[in-house]
Structures are given as C-alpha cells and as structure tokens.
C-alpha cells in the first residue's frame, strides 16, 4: 500500500511543528525518517496513523484519506509509538493476544501469530512474565511484536531500536529489511548508521520542513558535488609532486596533508574523476602510488550541515 503525504501541516498555536511537507512512500520501500529532536518526526507519524488531527493537508493510503477512512485503514497499519507505551500489569502473551484481537486477527489464527511474534522477537523466555517485570530491551521487543502481530501492510515505527543490545539491533534491522520487501515501512531514528543499514530512502526533516530526500548515495553526492581523493605518493619530492598534481587539468584544489608521508588531498573539478590522471602521472614520473582513497562525506556531516543553521 502506498502512502502519499501532501502539504501536511500541524500547528500548535503559532508554532508550526510540521510545515507543509509532502512525500510518498511506495510498497516495498523502507523510509528512514531523520531529524534532530523536536524536528517534527513523531508529529508526522502521529498524523499518518491519524492519532492526532492534521491542521492542513492530507495523508492518503491507497488513495484513501486517513481522516475519513481511519477505521478502515487502521487495521492495515502496525504502529510503534514513541516511548513504547505498554500495559505493564499484563503478561506478554495476554497482551499480544489482546492486540491481535483488537486488530481483527481471526480467533483461530491468534495462537499462531503470537507464536510467530514470540519467535521473531526472541521473547520465548519472557512470554509469561508481566511486561512491567521486563527490562527496557525486552519491552521494546514486545512493542515491536505488538506492531507486527496482525501482519500489517504498513509499519510505522518510532525509534524501533532504542534500548536494544547490538545483537538485537542487527536482528531487528534484518527483520525490518525482510518485511520491507513486501510492505511499506516508515521508521524514525537518531542512529545514523541505522538508516544507512536499513533504509532504501532517507528523509531528513528539520524545524518541520524536509531538508533532504533521497538514498544515502544521492544525499552524499548532493552534499559533496565533486570527488575528493586522498593519495600518498612515495619516491618523489613533496613540492615537486604538489606542483605536478596542481597542474593536472582535472584537479581543482590540492592540499598537503602530511609532508613526511607525502600525503595529499585532491579535490577534482566537478563531475570529473582524477583517479586515472593521478595514476598516469605517477607512472610517467616513476613515483610509487601507495594509497588512493576516495573520501566520502559521512552521513553525520550531511546531517549536521542540513540541520544546524
């Protein structure tokens, strides 16, 4: 099921929490929602699930507005709210049973679904305990289990991996990835490597406005524009190498990073790669090229660039 968000706006008094944002998520796509605290991620997710009313704009799922068809659409959505609220006095099994029944899972199918979720989320040892007795990580697993109990077409997960240990994070990411092939997934997170590892597309939002939208590669390209290489050339005189590099037609800026090691950083002219020319130069001059690393802009830098103003 496709989700289309159009001119979505949420105002609290004079403050715009979400300001006229539009984007689409298609079936089989995992969208990572990034942004600093208070950027409007949670508010947007709450509006998609129709928990809070939108001030303006609309969200449609398969062409149906969530405002008008909420009761029909809700059963297709699995939602993990922020802070993962749970009924602490309920045993895990009873809680999953309750959620399955509310989501309209057929009675005969509920035990199967619970078993499946307990297995997927690694809850077997804890399934008869009360949720209040569980550690934070296990509670998070229960939260994820309840969101997926009815095998929903759409998954909306607000920070799904907080409180999980590294092994569990990897497992949950794999699970989300697997589900993402057939379903529509929107997840929000603060953890940047997580979006890169799990998401097909990244959406960065700041002050209620979308500031970037694309795959992690396109975001990098956008942020950087031109290629940056780190090269180490031995068997030559530093200043000589420096001059020769500068004279290459394809280099824009050359920096000496380390004189003793003959380490340089080369920024190429836009949309031209200078890797071949550098290699040729070394061959012609009889230098040894011992290192050549393309420098990628880290997602962290992009994030900081876009959200700090």
């Amino acid at each position: 099921m496709d989700i289309v968000i159009k001119n979505l706006t949420k105002t609290y008094g004079v403050q715009k929490a979400v300001d006229n944002i539009s984007f689409e998520v298609k079936t089989g796509e995992i969208l990572g929602f990034l942004g600093p605290n208070g950027a409007g991620k949670t508010t947007t997710m709450k509006m998609i699930t129709n928990y809070i009313k939108m001030s303006d704009g609309d969200v449609t799922i398969d062409g149906k507005s969530v405002q008008e068809n909420a009761d029909e659409l809700k059963k297709y959505i699995g939602y993990l709210p922020e802070h993962n609220p749970l009924y602490l006095d309920m045993p895990v099994i009873d809680y999953l049973d309750f959620c399955a029944a509310l989501q309209g899972v057929h009675k005969s199918n509920i035990p199967n679904r619970i078993k499946e979720m307990v297995r997927l989320c690694g809850l077997n040892a804890e399934k008869h305990k009360k949720i209040g007795e569980l550690s934070k990580g296990y509670r998070q697993r229960v939260g994820i289990a309840q969101a997926m109990i009815h095998d929903p077409q759409i998954l909306i997960l607000d920070e799904p991996t907080t409180g999980l240990d590294p092994n569990q994070i990897v497992e949950i990411r794999e699970l989300i990835k697997k589900l993402g092939r057939e379903k529509t997934v929107i997840l929000s997170t603060h953890i940047l490597p997580e979006v890169e590892a799990t998401c097909d597309r990244i959406l960065i939002i700041n002050n209620g406005v979308i500031v970037a939208d694309g795959t992690s590669q396109t975001l990098r390209k956008q942020a950087q524009g031109s290629e940056v290489l780190r090269v180490r050339i031995e068997d030559g005189e530093t200043n000589d190498i420096f001059e020769q590099l500068q004279q290459l037609y394809c280099t824009e800026v050359v920096d000496i990073l380390d004189r003793e090691k003959n380490l340089f950083e080369i920024q190429s002219v836009k949309e031209i790669s200078s890797t071949r020319s550098v290699f040729k130069l070394c061959v012609d001059k009889g230098w040894s090229l011992t290192e050549m690393t393309p420098m990628e802009t880290k997602l962290e830098d992009i994030f900081r660039d876009l959200t700090l103003n």
Binding site: Y51, D71, G104
Partner: peptide
C-alpha cells in the same frame, strides 16, 4: 497507552 489503543482497529 491510549495512543496504542486508539491506533488499533
């Protein structure tokens, strides 16, 4: 938990 309950079907 009201959010959980009201976002169910």
């Amino acid at each position: 938990t009201i959010e959980l309950l009201l976002t169910k079907a």
